[in-house]
Design a protein around this nucleic acid. Structure first.
Lengths: 226, 226
DNA sequence: CGGCATGGTTTGTGATCACATCCATTCTAT
DNA sequence: ATAGAATGGATGTGATCACAAACCATGCCG
């Protein structure tokens, strides 16, 4: 593809060239997004050749992306190597909820001193979009906006390792969340989100921790009851 | 290897047959162990072909094992695809320590009601082995026994998802831990471990949480100072 | 009519190859 | 002599192939 490299004096050695994020990377991101947003139901079976065909690639990048997602708990690997989206037991859901309840208040507390007004404003806007999604009974949109709301806040904590760990938990809950929010069509206005915004504005860390914890545990309480 | 499959009427269809854990799985376990125990220094470069040659395999299983470890944060992937063992920044170490300080007390508290006498006894024996490793200035042995001590306790919490999450944190700290314990040759008797055992015997959950938290933060405080 | 063997088909695994890129050494020109 | 370019080796990526195990469904026999 590079016609004559000797003729050009390396026009853009490390320029912001479109860059090719590597096929397996794009595949990974795509699958990860679909899983976290709950577009795949729990227990859905996937095949390497099927994924490869769907994305017009060979099995190799599909294998790498799937292996990565399995390592993060986003997919389950049966003994014979078959991959499915996880069907979580009640105990596992409770554990993941407990982890969220441990980590998210900590991230919120770390973000609090750095939460300037513009951020709170954008969070309020995001909250409105969540209400919209609820109005339209758009489960995937609801999950996406809800996660964006939390992520936008936690990004201010400047704690990438914690956030990465939390996102893998969200990933594992993805398919199950969809199964839940798809069932309960009751409009659930982001009540706790308003409490979070109030605590942020007041600079009240204990109240913020409580509000975040309440939001997490409330949303996930429905899951264990099944 | 299967001489004549047609002659035998499938003697053990799903028996606990030794089974071949698949080459990439063995490779993954081996590398993971070496990383978590700190046998590889931070920043060590690895190559797929090098790993493949070392284990007498092709690049394919090496790629899968490495990809999995990268996904768990046990290895770092440079922009050009080169893999190295991570060299953690002080901020990242602080985050990982904070995560340990959040999760480990919770796991200990959940294990407490299930911690019968035999377990406490085995933990005390493990503690003695830690003292031995300290005596011999055996860094890898120290790390292994220390992790075994914690894992043995947390296994009783019956919380596999939490334990898995915690182990990935241990993994990420592996190379750095070795770099630390290799430097500080001062014998550090497992003081906090005795506090943990005392709290377990007394059935005192608040004291147990405090002791575990102290053990974690104490051990990791040396890392940030560098 | 029902349970089980048996066939074909699908799927994951590992090896090998072609290719683009990166890294380092070396060579050349000023 | 030194700085920059060229060249060769090394490395990751993706495709393709051969193979064994697993899965599924049909059909056979009791």
């Amino acid at each position: 593809m590079t016609v004559t490299r000797s003729s050009l004096p390396t026009p853009d050695p490390n320029l912001p060239r479109p860059n090719d994020p590597a096929a397996h990377e794009r595949l990974y991101r795509s699958l990860r997004s679909r899983i976290m947003l709950g577009e795949l139901p729990p227990g859905k079976a996937l095949t390497l050749r099927g994924i490869a065909r769907e994305y017009h690639l060979s099995m190799t990048p599909a294998r790498e992306a799937v292996r990565r997602l399995v390592a993060e708990g986003a997919l389950t690997l049966s003994a014979s190597g078959r991959v499915t989206t996880p069907a979580l037991s009640d105990e596992r859901i409770e554990e993941l909820a407990a982890l969220r309840a441990l980590i998210e208040p900590e991230l919120a507390a770390r973000a609090l001193p750095r939460a300037h007004f513009a951020l709170i404003d954008r969070l309020a806007q995001m909250n409105a979009r969540i209400a919209d999604a609820v109005e339209r009974h758009d489960a995937v949109g609801y999950i996406r906006c809800n996660l964006d709301f939390h992520r936008m806040l936690y990004l201010r904590a400047q704690a990438p390792a914690m956030l990465a760990m939390l996102e893998t938990i969200w990933l594992q809950l993805g398919p199950t969340m969809r199964a839940l929010y798809g069932r309960v069509k009751r409009n659930e206005p982001p009540r706790h989100h308003r409490m979070i915004l109030a605590a942020l504005r007041a600079g009240d860390e204990p109240a913020l921790r409580l509000a975040v914890r309440a939001d997490v545990t409330h949303g996930l309480r429905h899951l264990t009851s099944t």
